[in-house]
Design a binder for these strands. Sequence first.
DNA 1: GCGGTTGCATACGGTGGCGTACAGACGGCA
DNA 2: TGCCGTCTGTACGCCACCGTATGCAACCGC
Lengths: 185, 185
Amino acid sequence: MARIRTTREAWIEQGLRALAAGGPDAVRVEALAKDLGVTKGGFYGSFADRDALLGAMLDTWEREATDEVLARVEREGGDARTRLTRAGVLTFSSDRLLPLDLAVREWARRDPAVAERLRRVDERRMGLLRELLGTLSADPDEVEARSLLAFCLAIGEHLLTTGHGDRTRAQVLARAANLLFPPSP
Amino acid sequence: MARIRTTREAWIEQGLRALAAGGPDAVRVEALAKDLGVTKGGFYGSFADRDALLGAMLDTWEREATDEVLARVEREGGDARTRLTRAGVLTFSSDRLLPLDLAVREWARRDPAVAERLRRVDERRMGLLRELLGTLSADPDEVEARSLLAFCLAIGEHLLTTGHGDRTRAQVLARAANLLFPPSP
DNA sequence: GCGGTTGCATACGGTGGCGTACAGACGGCA
DNA sequence: TGCCGTCTGTACGCCACCGTATGCAACCGC
C-alpha cells in the first residue's frame, strides 16, 4: 500500500483557501491540484466529484465556526463581556474564519442548501449573543435588538473600507461597543 | 442606418441583473445574449470585450447608488430622521440596488479596482450619515460610532437570515433604530 | 526481495465560454 | 428602387475545466 501523499483533508484545506480567496467558483479541482503540487489524478479517489469536495468543505467550516468556537469560549470562561469579546475575536478576527464566513455568506445567496447551513450557524451565534447580552439587560426586546446590532457590526465592520477622519477603526469600534454593551447599571 | 436592436444600455442592464443574481462570474456574454434573445454577434460592436461591459456596469451602479439616491433625498427634503430613513430605503430596500450592492461588495474582495469604487461609494454614504446624525448628537466621536453602527445594520440586516422568536425582523429593527437614533433631547 | 495495492501522471473526450471573421438582413435615405 | 451602414446569425479557433481510463512506480507486509 503506497503512502497517501495528498489526504482528503489536504484537498479540503486547499479548497477552503480557494473559497476564501475567490468564492465558490474559484474552487477548481485542477487548480487545487496545482497548488498542492500534484495533478488531479488522485482527487477522484478521495471524492466522487467536485460537489463532494464542496460539501466536505462546508462540513469542516460549519464545525469550526460553531462547535469549536463555542467550546473554546465555554472552556476559557470569564464574565459575559469577556466571553462575548472572545467569541467575536475567534470568529471575526481570525484570518481563517472571517474570509470563509464572508465567502460562505455570499455563496448562500445563490445556493439554498448553503443558505440553510449558514442559517443554522447564525442561529447558534445569535443564541450565544442572546444568552450573553441577556445577562446585561432585562428587557428581552432590547436584548434582541442589541444582539442584532452586535451581529451586524461584527460582520459589517469588515465590509466597510472607509476611514473615520482622525480616528482609527478600533477607536470607533470601541465607542460603538460601549453603545451596545452598556456598562452594567 | 439600421435601427439599433440591442443597445449598449440593454447589455449593461442585463449584465447588472446577472451580477445581482450570480456575482461577477455569472456575467457571461453568451448568457446575456441568450437572455436578450439575440446572439453575441452584436455585443462586440458596443463593447471592446467583456471587461469593458463590467466597467460600464460599475459606472452605472456607482451613479445610481450615489448621485441619484443623494439627489432624491435632497429633493424630497424632510428632517434628519426622515431623510436618513429615505436614504436607507432607497439604497437597501430596493430590489435593484440591494442585490447589486451585495454583489459588488463581494466582488470588491477580489478585485482592487472594484474595491476602490466601492470605497468611494461608501465614503459618500458615510458622509450623509455623519451629516444627518450630526444634527442629532453633539459629540463627534459618538456620531462616528452611531454612523458605523447604522451602516453595518443596514447592510448586515440582509445577511442574517435567522428569526427572532416571536418578533418580526421589522420589530427588532425598529427597536434597534431607536437605540441608534435617540429621540431628540 | 517480491507481489499486490494504491496514489499519481498522463492522455482523452466533452462542454462551455471568449473573441474574431464574415455574410446577410434590415431599415433609413437619396 | 437601390445604396449603405449597422446589427445579427453562424462558424471557427482557442483555452480552461470536468470526469474517466490507463499505465506506472512507490511502498507495504510478508
